[in-house]
Nucleic acid binder design. Structure first.
Lengths: 190, 190
DNA sequence: TCTCCCTTGTTGACACTGTCAACAGACCGT
DNA sequence: ACGGTCTGTTGACAGTGTCAACAAGGGAGA
């Protein structure tokens, strides 16, 4: 295989570091060292530390997009949508630090347009899946927004530790199934 | 009025600092200085910086709880619930940095039990409001969880800057009304 | 009153971090 | 051969979280 570009390797190493030792362990020195480079090396590939974090988040979003896109296409649209939601949750659960980072306010999205664009890609991929079920672009966009919001909300509450004791947030998958049902059963008009 | 305890003043000053200049501006030195004290003074009231952040989040949760509790009691239960949701959103919008901090993974909830307890207080207050509508404790808990998840999700997506261009997340209040309708219209059994 | 101790606050010090400037080598087209 | 760009290294500096040592105050008990 071709050798991995240094920039990609830095992002990958930084992601691993974040997931294994927490976001606070992601220091430019540690990242450089883990990538086999020296302290200042990342500055040849990223303007800022914030720029590196944005890259981590961006690739995380791309991974999420791929996960929901890989849901079995042979399923009927409803079941595939459900599978995509499960894949979304599973990916977020597998890398909670990155997932939290994506929606962190630390990243001023104004200064990181490619992060916004990665978010839009994931969103549009999701809209496509919903559209296979509804066959109505506007309704699909609206439903996808609600589904994403509901999913993300339940996920965050669980990841943040709130709600582990509160019944109903304990089993996210069940909660999600119910939320998805509620959203999709909504009157189409409004 | 009685003089404000130093600890409370530190938390208040730190909260103001966070909202006006961003979370990264909250340094122990700056907080001490803004409180009229010296750099190391906060250490007499908080074990860690993380401990101070947890206190900020905790009081933020208490403020949210008070906001939803203050929704006009003379309204009928359905409208009051809607007003409470609006108050929740308004409070979060008024202090986005604190709101984001509450659900940040930086705060290991294991080490900050009083933060978890503040979250439970807010949740239970919310369940009470839903119960005035449903008159069924279990169903209310379940519905409250879903409403909170959906609200928080829509809010976060909007606060993080994702979705400002995507139709449907633009107007959160409309989205919330629809989500609330969908959740409350759900079959009670499941 | 005097003494003891605990609480609150200050200051000096240290390791670590993000960041930048100065420098070194590799590669590449002319 | 040569100048320039790209990638990488190292030294330096201001800030930051954190801790130990020290000072001031006030309340409890003799």
């Amino acid at each position: 295989m071709g050798e991995e570009p240094t920039r990609d390797r830095i992002v990958r190493v930084a992601t691993d570091l974040a997931e294994s030792d927490g976001l606070s362990a992601v220091t430019l020195r540690a990242v450089g060292s883990a990538a086999g480079l020296s302290r200042g090396a990342p500055y040849r590939h990223f303007r800022d530390k914030s720029d590196l974090l944005a890259a981590i988040a961006e690739q995380g979003l791309a991974r999420i997009r791929r996960a929901i896109l890989n849901s079995d296409p042979s399923l009927d649209p409803g079941q595939r949508l459900s599978a995509a939601l499960s894949a979304y949750v599973a990916t977020a659960r597998a890398e909670p630090v990155v997932y939290t980072l994506i929606f962190s306010a630390d990243l001023a999205t104004d200064h990181h347009p490619e992060l916004v664009s990665a978010g839009l890609d994931a969103y549009n991929t999701f809209v496509d899946l919903v559209d296979e079920l509804l066959h109505d672009r506007d309704a699909s966009r609206s439903a996808a927004s609600k589904l994403w919001a509901a999913t993300h909300g339940a996920l965050t509450l669980s990841l943040a530790g709130h709600g582990t004791k509160e019944k109903g947030l304990d089993d996210i998958d069940a909660l999600l199934r119910e939320l998805a049902l509620a959203v999709l059963a909504m009157p189409r008009g409004t």
